[in-house]
Nucleic acid binder design. Structure first.
Lengths: 148, 148
DNA sequence: AGTGATTATATTGTATACAATATTAAAGAA
DNA sequence: TTCTTTAATATTGTATACAATATAATCACT
């Protein structure tokens, strides 16, 4: 007799839930900066590498340019970044952090870290959790590759 | 000297990636049924419990009614479900599977299972991965609770 | 029965998210 | 140099996703 397929047994569903919970989780530490979770992740990438193209961010964040273009415009409007055509290659748009974007790195990271600490992961637990998730990604990527 | 905060070290980011990859992963098995991943998850819940309210689905799926109402209307339009006001309590909308929705349970599950098998999880690995994700959810939920 | 509070769903506004298409610029070929 | 191809970003259309608000029905209390 085949086992019944239930919602809660689906790993995709549990990953979705974790994703939703993270979105909610980040609301509190980011509220005072008027940032969403995805906008924070974008800034995180820019704090690592500034002055990059939309395409670079798209690869790094795993988001399409159809998602990024409006998102970056909102970040620009809020004063965190600038968007400028590359003078040497006018197809490209270069994204740079503004002084505001640079100055707020530490306060934002502190606010987020304060919340992350409340998750109470010790180093081993955290490493194990990351390994499990990365391993899942690899399995999914391998399978997705085969589709092409 | 404090460690640098990088994108790839963020567990939230890795969860997001896994979520995105799952969305892509489900495209292939669901394409022939013209279903999205979230629509599939909704049907999965209805195959467990049919004739439920929007509110019930909202709780079960962890989605707001602002998300579910248009999603259910699309499922209705495609012929998978019906939406009817409860005669005994006209505030409620009861969601029922159509014959099409019932008849396609097995074909859809088979199509999905065929892809899931390609993830190559054995029972122990799968159980461990699920435990890790559920544990993460609990940590996030506990923290989110404190915010209220 | 009347009314205030509660419940259930729908709507609105904003923000992801991506596929497909369009636009423009650069690079390469004839 | 002109033409084709390629590359980079933007736009459009559809689908999540949720907070805040609106609407309507029910419940609880007097």
């Amino acid at each position: 007799m085949p086992k019944e397929v239930t919602l809660n047994d689906q790993i995709c569903f549990q990953i979705s839930r974790a994703h939703q919970l993270f979105n909610k989780f980040y609301q509190e530490p980011l509220e005072k900066f008027n940032l969403t979770y995805v906008q924070y992740i974008t800034l995180l990438s820019l704090w690592e590498n500034d002055g990059v193209t939309v395409n670079y961010l798209s690869q790094k964040l795993g988001l399409s340019n159809g998602t990024l273009t409006p998102l970056l415009k909102r970040l620009e409007k809020a004063g965190w970044i600038t968007r400028n055509r590359d003078k040497t290659d006018e197809r490209r748009v270069l994204i740079h952090l503004t002084q505001l974007g640079k100055d707020n790195k530490e306060p934002i990271l502190e606010s987020v870290q304060g919340c992350l600490n409340r998750l109470n992961y010790n180093d081993d637990e955290f490493a194990d959790a990351m390994d499990t998730i990365i391993d899942l990604q690899h399995r999914l990527e391998k399978t997705n590759e085969n589709d092409k």
